[in-house]
Simulated assay, not measured.
Amino acid sequence: MYGNFQRVSYPTHKSPMDCDTAHRESDWVQAASFDRIYVLQVGEFGVTRQQKLDLLQKIFWPALARWVISRQQILPGGTILGGWWRADMQGMMDWYRECLHMTARWEDAIIAHTDGIWRIALETSPWRDWPEFFLLLNEPVLDGNGQPVRDATGRIVYKKRDPTTDGMEDAFLDLWEAIADSRPLVGFSNNITSKDGAMLLGSQPHATKDLCV
């Protein structure tokens, strides 16, 4: 089976999406089809979920970010034209679904709409540490009376929110679209990244316990 896969470089000089749409770019599709990390399922021939997420985070996202930044125009007063569009995130979520062998939007839009992939895409994207997403990712822990639980210092305790709840994907896309261009991305400036796969976009451990703020 390994013989079916070749070392094909991804065309990182252009966007993984076709122009300004959410459709996948044909050269990227071809390259991905020969990439064992992308094509094989988790567990096949040693392929891991983390390898797949690293591929999307360190190859796909930087290429898209460079392309988006290159099309931007900053007008007098700071208004940005041609920045991040909703289709950019929707297209990336489609790449995630295929790479992780999940149901595609065009196969079953209802299933895809509630698969929670938005959270995985966000947590491996350049916006992963933006505080604006905290309340979208987390919710207060409630006591038996429906009141927020507080820790010994009086801070509200939070837990991870279920990303598959109906409406969460739309809420994420609405928020992301509203703030994606609000400030520069860390590690990206003037169409240059520090390096594909740099730790600025690398995987970092997530807290699994309840949070307090």
Rank of each mutant, 00 (worst) to 15 (best):
L40V: 02
K58Q: 13
V39E: 07
P140C: 02
K58T: 03
A87C: 12
I111F: 09
H101G: 08
G43T: 03
L211K: 11
R150T: 01
V149K: 10
D115L: 15
V141Q: 04
R119Q: 07
I117T: 07
A104S: 15
Q204A: 14
D18F: 05
Q30V: 11
Q90R: 13
F133D: 04
V186Y: 05
N191E: 05
V42N: 02
T79C: 15
G167N: 04
Y38L: 06
R66L: 13
R49M: 03
S182K: 08
A22M: 11
A112G: 00
G3E: 13
W106E: 12
M17L: 09
D115C: 06
T164M: 07
F45Q: 11
P184M: 02
I69A: 08
T48P: 00
S189F: 13
I80A: 10
D210S: 03
C212M: 15
A63Y: 00
C99I: 06
A198W: 07
A87E: 15
A22Y: 08
D166P: 11
R49K: 01
K209G: 10
K52R: 12
W67K: 05
W67A: 10
T21L: 08
L175S: 03
D166N: 11
L137H: 04
W28G: 04
K195D: 09
V8S: 04
S9K: 13
N191D: 02
D210G: 02
K159C: 14
G144K: 13
M102Y: 09
A63H: 01
Q73S: 14
P11E: 04
W106R: 12
S182A: 10
D166Q: 11
A32G: 01
K14G: 00
L81Y: 10
D196M: 12
L137N: 05
L55R: 09
T193M: 10
A32R: 01
M102K: 12
C212P: 08
L173C: 01
M168T: 01
K160D: 09
H13R: 12
V186E: 04
L64F: 02
F188W: 12
W28T: 04
